[in-house]
Amino acid sequence: MTQQTALVIEDSPEFTRVATTLLGNEGFRVVHASNGEQGIEAARRYGPELVLLDITLPGIDGIEVCRRIREFSDCYVVMVTARTDELDRVLGLTMGADDYVTKPFSPRELTARIRAMRRRPRVAASPDVRLFGRLSVDPVAHEVLVDGEAVELTRIEYDLLEVLTGAPRRTFTRGQLMDAVWGGDWVGDDHVIVVHLANLRRKLGESATNQGWIRTVRGFGYRFEPVTDEEPATALAR
């Protein structure tokens, strides 16, 4: 089995040592970059499965680094921050991060999150393309089209859409979506569902106030509504 690579983008030598040991114990080959520009180049060069990315970096910050990595990679990205401002965490997730941890954190917590992320079960693929008016979801190719144009989604955004489209009109609680996408041993909070669904809606040309395919069921959760051509969803955001 080919050893997977983890990339640590962090300017703190102490944290880098801890993260390198932790990831090495998880079976990763670990590479390191000490600033954002080096991190982006390392991500291109090594094609890591996982990036552990500090928000506060010399030069360009981690949020911008995440955005630029997402232009060419669907690797797992875990943001690390010493800040307590929720806005930083939301911005990181909006730029395509899969999860975040806040310093100080226990190595056990980070290890549990990484293991849960890597074990996250993919939704069982169906040989049939799912067609919902202007939207098509191909579970084999992992491709999403709106009006015939490809929509670029992160792994988690795609997995959420695949779960929802696999059972149209069924309402899922946040917990059910967490279990389906991350697995039952997830140790994070379910707020990440809200952010990832907001990102997914935006990419599909929707929003929480202008809902089309993805509907909020107040007080319970979310469902996928197979909108027909006669009831078009909002136009794809350009």
Rank of each mutant, 00 (worst) to 15 (best):
residue 171 T to F: 07
residue 171 T to L: 02
residue 171 T to G: 01
residue 171 T to Q: 05
residue 172 F to H: 03
residue 172 F to E: 02
residue 173 T to F: 02
residue 173 T to S: 02
residue 173 T to P: 11
residue 174 R to W: 14
residue 174 R to Q: 11
residue 174 R to I: 12
residue 174 R to V: 04
residue 175 G to V: 00
residue 175 G to D: 02
residue 175 G to F: 00
residue 175 G to P: 03
residue 176 Q to W: 01
residue 176 Q to G: 01
residue 176 Q to V: 01
residue 176 Q to H: 05
residue 177 L to V: 01
residue 177 L to K: 06
residue 177 L to M: 10
residue 178 M to V: 06
residue 178 M to K: 11
residue 178 M to F: 03
residue 179 D to P: 00
residue 179 D to Q: 04
residue 179 D to Y: 01
residue 180 A to R: 06
residue 180 A to E: 10
residue 180 A to G: 07
residue 180 A to T: 06
residue 180 A to P: 00
residue 180 A to W: 02
residue 181 V to S: 00
residue 181 V to Y: 01
residue 182 W to H: 05
residue 182 W to G: 01
residue 183 G to D: 02
residue 183 G to M: 03
residue 183 G to R: 04
residue 184 G to E: 11
residue 184 G to P: 13
residue 184 G to C: 11
residue 184 G to H: 06
residue 184 G to L: 08
residue 185 D to R: 02
residue 185 D to I: 02
residue 186 W to Y: 08
residue 186 W to V: 12
residue 186 W to M: 02
residue 186 W to P: 05
residue 186 W to A: 03
residue 187 V to T: 12
residue 187 V to Y: 09
residue 188 G to W: 02
residue 188 G to E: 12
residue 188 G to D: 14
residue 188 G to L: 01
residue 189 D to W: 07
residue 189 D to G: 10
residue 189 D to C: 15
residue 190 D to S: 10
residue 190 D to H: 07
residue 191 H to M: 08
residue 191 H to K: 10
residue 192 V to M: 11
residue 192 V to L: 09
residue 192 V to W: 13
residue 192 V to I: 13
residue 192 V to H: 14
residue 192 V to A: 04
residue 193 I to D: 14
residue 193 I to T: 06
residue 193 I to W: 14
residue 193 I to M: 10
residue 193 I to Y: 08
residue 194 V to T: 03
residue 194 V to R: 10
residue 195 V to W: 10
residue 195 V to D: 03
residue 195 V to L: 03
residue 195 V to M: 15
residue 195 V to F: 12
residue 195 V to H: 08
residue 196 H to W: 03
residue 197 L to P: 08
residue 197 L to M: 14
residue 197 L to R: 12
residue 198 A to N: 08
residue 198 A to G: 07
residue 199 N to V: 13
residue 199 N to P: 07
residue 199 N to I: 09
residue 200 L to H: 12
residue 200 L to R: 13
residue 200 L to Y: 10
residue 201 R to V: 12
residue 201 R to S: 11
residue 201 R to I: 13
residue 201 R to E: 12
residue 201 R to D: 07
residue 202 R to C: 07
residue 203 K to E: 11
residue 203 K to T: 13
residue 203 K to P: 14
residue 203 K to V: 15
residue 203 K to D: 12
residue 204 L to V: 09
residue 204 L to W: 04
residue 204 L to E: 02
residue 205 G to Y: 12
residue 205 G to S: 04
residue 206 E to M: 06
residue 206 E to Y: 06
residue 206 E to N: 10
residue 206 E to K: 09
residue 206 E to V: 12
residue 207 S to F: 15
residue 207 S to M: 06
residue 208 A to N: 04
residue 209 T to K: 05
residue 209 T to V: 10
residue 210 N to P: 14
residue 210 N to Y: 08
residue 211 Q to C: 09
residue 211 Q to P: 04
residue 211 Q to I: 09
residue 212 G to R: 06
residue 212 G to M: 03
residue 212 G to P: 10
residue 212 G to A: 12
residue 212 G to W: 11
residue 212 G to C: 03
residue 213 W to E: 05
residue 213 W to A: 05
residue 213 W to G: 09
